[in-house]
Computed example of a mutant assay.
Amino acid sequence: MRAVAALLLLPAVLAAGVSSPQPLSPFSFYNLSTPLSGPCDICTGPDGALWVQNILVDKIARVDPATGDVEEYSIPYTSPPLNASLLSGFTGGRTASACAIRPGNDGNIYAVSGIRNQFLRINVTTRKIDVFTPTPYNPLGDVQPFNDLIACPNGMFFSQTTANVISHFNYASEIFTTYLLPTPLSAALGMIYFKDYLWFAELLGNKIGRLDPNDSSITEYPLTLSLLGPAVFRAALSNPDRVCFTAFLAGANGCLNINTGEIEVYPNTGLLPELSLPSENAKDEREGYEDIIYYSTATQNYINILNATSGEIFNIDEPDTLLAEPLSLPIYLDIGINYGPGDAVWFTQATENRVGRYCLGMSC
């Protein structure tokens, strides 16, 4: 099935009767300079580069897909209550444990700073990183390191899991607005902005939430145990309109029809799929592949491919995997996955301290 998936997804190599050579391997890897960085989340920047948020070191990395050059930029260390810059040498530069980075609609990139409960803006031209502290400041906002953020027309929404709130950062005013979630201890995590609403996953509440920015109302959709632990939204589909998410604790993926409320369940396949820990997903942006979703599995070294129309799931093995499942050996700890830059799927390998690229065609 894995070979079939590769054949289905790779474009034809013949054009006008002329054969176009394929590379020996569709995989390429880019190592980070700082040891034990723990690359975690990734996104495509407005500059066409791949941007990386590390979980084990307080740095943002940039990969130039054309040259393969990797640059790293240190996140300024500030005291959150005062938002005052401090020297970070005594911290070892490893005090954030952050794992979320997304492009804004204003030409910048935004990221979170994990357990510091702060918010980052990255200028892709100057590489300057500004640090913002949400107000009112809550030191318990993200005492565990995972939260998420997403762009909307006038700013960025981001989750504060242990504070049980969602916040909004306005691009122009730089003012924060906070929305308290109706379900206690729901642990809002992943989010996506689609059809004028913010959709978010409640990891512990086991619900999907919908926030209306116009009136601040929140609607919740309960999930069954077959979608236990909804984690990350990175895919929105049309015809019908659906938002799709990973179910971290169930070894599955789900899609919510935003018009009917119907919820589809896509269980993982293979040996002990409940141990696979689906983490992030990404939608294919090519014409004709609108229902293809890629997703990572933290304990299995696969590029997983879900056809959200047929329900079929295929897997592509990552190089040098000795045992693929139920737990891969060695475990690469894949978390981040992204379609693009280029005609490619990018992914992180935290234990290998690198990001990978899987070419889908000749233009990656």
Rank of each mutant, 00 (worst) to 15 (best):
S88Y: 08
S88G: 15
G89R: 13
F90K: 12
F90V: 07
F90A: 12
T91R: 15
G92K: 11
G92D: 09
G93Y: 00
R94A: 15
R94C: 10
R94E: 14
T95A: 08
T95L: 03
A96I: 03
S97M: 11
S97F: 13
S97G: 14
A98E: 07
A98V: 06
A98R: 09
A98K: 12
C99S: 12
C99M: 01
A100H: 09
A100C: 10
A100S: 14
I101T: 06
R102Q: 14
R102K: 14
R102F: 03
R102L: 00
R102M: 02
R102H: 11
P103Q: 13
P103D: 11
P103M: 00
G104F: 01
G104T: 03
G104C: 03
N105A: 06
D106H: 06
G107R: 09
G107W: 07
N108Y: 10
I109V: 14
Y110N: 00
Y110C: 01
Y110H: 03
A111P: 04
A111H: 02
A111G: 07
A111C: 04
V112T: 15
V112A: 08
V112I: 15
V112S: 13
G114T: 05
G114Y: 00
G114R: 00
I115E: 14
I115S: 10
I115F: 06
R116L: 11
R116E: 11
N117H: 14
N117M: 03
Q118S: 08
Q118H: 10
F119D: 03
F119S: 03
L120N: 11
R121Y: 01
I122G: 02
I122F: 10
I122Q: 05
V124L: 04
V124G: 03
T125Q: 13
T125G: 07
T125F: 10
T126L: 00
T126M: 00
T126N: 01
R127W: 05
K128F: 09
I129V: 14
D130P: 02
V131P: 07
V131I: 15
F132C: 02
P136C: 06
Y137P: 10
Y137G: 10
Y137F: 15
Y137T: 02
Y137R: 05
P139R: 14
P139E: 14
L140A: 12
L140N: 15
G141R: 08
D142V: 01
D142F: 04
D142W: 04
